[in-house]
Design a protein around this nucleic acid. Structure first.
Lengths: 248, 248
DNA sequence: TTCCTTTTATGTTTTAAAACACAAAGTTAC
DNA sequence: GTAACTTTGTGTTTTAAAACATAAAAGGAA
């Protein structure tokens, strides 16, 4: 599992990279959690923390595999998805840095129920779940972190069920655009979505065929709700998009 | 919130009922969890545990309300559902006794994201979530119980997204029948589903209109996969239903 | 560059499921 | 028991979205 370069790089540089990555981790969401660890615990984490690089579209793990690691996205963008009937794919969740993923199946005592792949070149750190489990046992805050995270995801998943089954195509695509903007944000112009995804991914996110994603997107362009330049999507009229997403 | 009869009944009988209910709770899933409590903790639970009765189709809580209680279904059957666009309803989860529900929103720091109602006359116990929170802080096993439960539900919810969006009507209904049999089981004949639900509920469970639920059910009858007598559904050919659910 | 593959775009046809419209059975209320 | 309402059952029409069919761009590789 350890990346090839790891063996090739001088120990000093390797340690620096890990330290840098961990610093990044510790400056985010879970900072309070990591800081309550004592020195010995911190040592264990640093020793076990392994960094991986994934190319654009590379699989990180696949449905059906045994979950062993907590994955922590340090850089890039990751999609969690499920292969359905007749080659259709449903994107279930989007991961941004710094977010954790891949732990649900382990906690549920199941194999992976969905797959994860990099949207763009991504750097990911792993910790063995056995270690995470130990840490949860010694750290109430960490337990609460996962309870909170799982609860929020479950709520999102239930909402998604209704969005994807009951809204019409325009509503679903508008919803997807809103979700993308909420999740990955905008470029400096405050309009351009900070994610550049294929029409096919957009379709897989909003439960439609690629043709319909393209068609509907064009519709939004002619209604001046967005502009499109290749994969660069600019949101012009967010209120109206939200309205369409609610039902229109 | 406390039921009217509570004030009317002699204290002795009331205590007996609560004790009986708690015994039932403690004999199930979470038994190991409740048994690790010390006497003072048990006292706190017994004092705070309140029993409620709900009539058929009565609402237990509604989307948008503030979550305050852990609900524990002692007797009966409960559905969790979400009102969607244009009066459509999606049933998200089915609760059987003894199962806990209504805690997700509290853990996520959100209001209820879905509603709960009794399918049939049901008895439900409540514990204030503040108390549950305290208990989790003092009881590692309880934390794990919720992590495990949330993780399993999240996996189920993700699977449901693909089932409901990608399968055809027959597949979705077959899936629903399988889920019902797995969840509520059969009568003594080992064929008759132990839940008697309106066609409308069946439709809301499998994302279709009532007419289509009725029509598709009739189809299954003429294919000799099931028999139907009012709301009594008998599964004749489960393997074939599973096949249809997988894709047919 | 040129060739080849993938992605985007758009028009047309087909189809699955919703919407609509009744009628018959069952329930519930009085 | 009868009236009123709800649920179940079926036939018909409509419609939203998939499937199919190309074609034009765009992106990569030799």
């Amino acid at each position: 599992m350890r990346t090839a370069w790891r063996a090739l790089l001088p120990e000093k540089i390797r340690e620096d990279m890990i330290k840098k990555a961990l610093e990044k981790v510790m400056s985010e969401d879970m900072s309070e959690i990591w800081t309550v660890l004592n020195n010995e615990e911190k040592r264990r984490i640093i020793d076990a923390f392994v960094i991986h690089n994934f190319k654009k579209n590379q699989m990180i793990y696949a449905e059906g595999e045994e979950p062993e690691y907590l994955w922590c996205l340090l850089q890039g963008k990751v999609k969690k998805f499920k292969d359905g009937v007749g080659g259709r794919v449903q994107i279930l969740r989007l991961i941004r840095s710094v977010q954790y993923f891949g732990y649900r199946a382990y906690f549920a005592n199941e194999r992976y129920n969905s797959s994860a792949a990099a949207f763009e070149p991504s750097t990911v750190g792993t910790l063995p779940m056995t270690l995470v489990k130990d840490m949860i046992n010694n750290n109430r805050k960490l337990a609460w972190f996962f309870i909170h995270e799982l609860s929020r995801n479950l709520g999102g998943s239930d909402t998604k069920i209704v969005n994807l089954t009951q809204k019409h195509i325009r509503g679903r695509l508008a919803e997807a655009l809103i979700v993308l903007s909420d999740h990955y944000g905008f470029e400096d112009d405050n309009m351009t979505l900070k994610i550049y995804m294929a029409r096919e991914d957009l379709a897989n996110l909003s439960n439609m065929t690629t043709s319909n994603a393209i068609r509907t997107l064009s519709g939004f362009v002619s209604e001046k709700l967005i502009t499109v330049d290749g994969r660069r999507i600019r949101i012009l009229d967010e209120p109206q998009l939200r309205k369409i997403s609610k039902y229109g």
